[in-house]
Design a protein around this nucleic acid. Structure first.
Length: 334
DNA sequence: CCTCCACTGGAAGATCGGGAAG
DNA sequence: CTTCCCGATCTTCCAGTGGAGG
């Protein structure tokens, strides 16, 4: 059934992006100055997840690189590299200047200095999930670096700006902002059709089934593709030739579980224990959660640290917190 | 209404680990 | 070798919040 698995992968960037022509044009013209060797004002892409922000950022940058000689580019996911140090390290990696910085004990601004010294060619950085950055001020350091062009990707614009310092907000005022809305049904089906054509053998899925997937995905292309991938994989496993409604129905929770599983793997031992307890109990009060956690673990951390862990798991969308202060309970996200 | 107290999240400072400088 | 430095992690302290119960 699966002829080519790549178009079904979440990271896949199609050579030609569907239904986002306007956004692509806006981004391309925002990056226009680079083609004549100048740096650009930052471009901010914002909108819900699965609306193509990352995809289009990568697509536009790829295309730019084919037009401009000596253009350096780098993609950084700030969810994974969320500290100042890690993020800057990745940025330096993009121009091969990360060598010899394997140490953490690099003087505070050495990384920024090194970046400024090293830049002679124009450099475009895509900062994905930029709202996950712990220390947003590092954006200001990047902003002030000449020759550096920033493409920022965030879920919610207002939330991002509320966490930025005064000077950054005023700087980013001039930024090109491009808003992404959820895909409509027809758009989502169109995206799925492409992936089916590129990735699956012919006639293994009908328009009706694609419609079902699009419905279940609620405008989120990443989930839609995830469902398609899960269903196709399962069909291969069972050696059937067609994707049926049953397979899609099973694919829905699997696609969501897959995203969750990725995050669970990144948890530390202590975080994992907390997560397991919350999943077992379904819903649990903070005090009880802490008691159970202490019983299960050698050398339990302080309550405060546990709260940090719980916050992190909320960011990862693994755990939901409901209520304030005394009435707070934690539960797993379904 | 008032008081109690479990709970939250910010701030400050202690501690650890690893690499650099002396 | 020791000392210093830095980021990461963790603890301690605390003001603020809001439900429970006089």
């Amino acid at each position: 059934m699966i002829a080519d698995a790549r178009p079904l992968q979440p990271e896949f960037v199609p050579g030609d992006v569907r239904h986002r022509e306007g956004e692509v044009d806006a981004l391309t013209s925002g990056l226009q100055p680079i083609t004549v060797g100048r740096k650009t004002e930052p471009v901010l892409l914002h909108g819900p997840s699965g609306t193509g922000k990352t995809c289009i950022a990568r697509h536009a940058v790829d295309r730019l690189r084919s037009e401009v000689v000596d253009l350096d580019t780098q993609y950084v996911n700030c969810w994974e590299d969320y500290t100042r140090f890690k993020m800057l390290y990745r940025v330096l990696e993009g121009i091969d200047r990360a060598l010899n910085v394997h140490r953490q004990s690099t003087p505070r601004d050495e990384l920024v200095d090194r970046l400024r010294d090293a830049l002679d060619d124009p450099y475009v950085i895509v900062l994905d999930e930029v709202d996950q950055l712990e220390e947003k001020d590092v954006l200001y350091d990047l902003y002030r670096t000449s020759g550096l062009s920033l493409v920022l990707v965030a879920n919610r614009e207002e939330e991002l700006f509320s966490e930025l310092s005064e000077r950054l907000v005023s700087r980013l005022h001039t930024a090109t902002r491009i808003r992404f809305d959820r895909y409509g049904m027809d758009e989502l089906i169109g995206i799925l059709e492409d992936r089916v054509r590129w990735g699956l053998r012919e006639d293994c899925i009908d328009h009706e089934q694609l419609t079902r997937i699009a419905e279940a995905a609620a405008g989120d292309a990443r989930i839609a593709i995830g469902i398609l991938r899960a269903a196709a994989r399962e069909a291969d496993g069972r050696r059937v030739k067609k994707i049926t409604d049953d397979l899609i129905e099973e694919g829905v929770p699997e696609a969501k579980a897959e995203i969750r599983q990725k995050h669970v793997q990144k948890l530390t031992e202590h975080q994992r224990v907390l997560y397991d307890v919350i999943v077992e109990r379904g819903e649990i009060a903070p005090g009880e959660l802490y008691d159970v956690y202490c019983e299960r673990v050698d050398g339990p951390k302080s309550r405060r640290m546990v709260r940090n862990h719980l916050q992190k798991m909320q960011r990862y969308n693994l755990v939901r917190a409901e209520g304030e202060s005394r009435s707070r309970t934690y539960s797993p996200t379904s």
